[in-house]
């Protein structure tokens, strides 16, 4: 299914103040892949996501979604296929009730109200919060808000899910629920995060970004066990792969990686 492919070709972007955020990034993500994008603060992860979504436009290079270039004219079509979940769900849940918020996208694409309702209910059931549909966003817990923000994107029925720090500010139980949810999705997934344990579980492939450039691109386990690479990029080996600080038992890298 080549039309689900996302491709960037020697992408470059610098902000109006001259700060160069992205330098020469090229990659290709295929249908059904789940890709983690990791890197230190300020490495350029968020800028990269904004370029993919067409919030920013590159100074050089190009982005292809399927066979379509991301330009001002194709935005409407592109954005129906890519769904982005923001880091702060409060930025994304702007309507007064959860139902209206999840319905916001489908209604903007002028679907008829029956179809809208069906999509909203499907999305809410998928993330397990259909009982909250009449609630106001400010009355929800952090985990519920995150679920609602994901539902708001799912109701658009995108092919690709793009998430910025999906586990930020979640308590351990909510985080676990989210990870299980993400593992269940069959969408193509692009996730940026500092939560490397989550990335390890959810993403088969990892792209490491350092100073706006790709430092590594490859198999998740290979990258997350490469201490030197991670250290050079301002990261560290996920806790799940580190030796136990209490009992000192050596984690068997091979066994974890299978």
């Amino acid at each position: 299914m080549s039309h689900h492919k996302i491709e960037t070709k020697s992408l470059g972007y610098s902000y109006p103040d001259g700060h160069v955020a992205i330098k020469n990034i090229s990659f290709s993500i295929h249908h059904g892949e789940s890709v983690g994008i990791i890197g230190a603060n300020g490495a350029g992860k968020s800028t990269l996501l904004m370029l993919l979504m067409g919030i920013l436009f590159p100074n050089q290079g190009e982005i292809l979604v399927g066979d379509v270039h991301v330009t001002k004219n194709t935005l409407s079509m592109i954005r129906q296929r890519l769904g982005m979940v923001f880091q702060d769900p409060d930025d994304q849940l702007f309507m007064t009730t959860i139902y209206d918020d999840v319905a916001f996208g489908p209604r903007n694409y002028r679907l008829d109200e029956n179809e809208v309702e069906q999509r909203v209910m499907n999305a809410l059931e998928t993330v397990g919060i259909s009982h909250l549909k009449e609630r106001a966003p400010f009355k929800l817990s952090g985990g519920e808000k995150r679920a609602a923000a994901i539902a708001a994107v799912l109701s658009m029925e995108p092919d690709v899910l793009i998430m910025d720090e999906p586990t930020a500010a979640l308590d351990p139980k909510s985080r676990r629920r989210l990870i299980n949810l993400l593992k269940g999705f069959e969408h193509t997934k692009i996730i940026t995060s500092h939560d490397l344990d989550m990335v390890l579980e959810v993403c088969k492939r990892i792209i490491v970004i350092k100073d706006g450039e790709i430092a590594a691109d490859g198999n998740g386990e290979d990258i997350l066990t490469n201490a030197d690479l991670l250290d050079a990029c301002g990261l560290e080996i996920p806790l799940a792969l580190q030796n136990c600080p209490v009992c000192g038992v050596n984690k068997d890298k091979e066994r974890w990686v299978k």
Binding site: R79, M84, D100
Partner: peptide
Amino acid sequence: IYQAMCLRGFTGEYHTG
């Protein structure tokens, strides 16, 4: 918030059920 609205197809018109 504006970006989040645009990503879900907002074009200045507000549609309701």
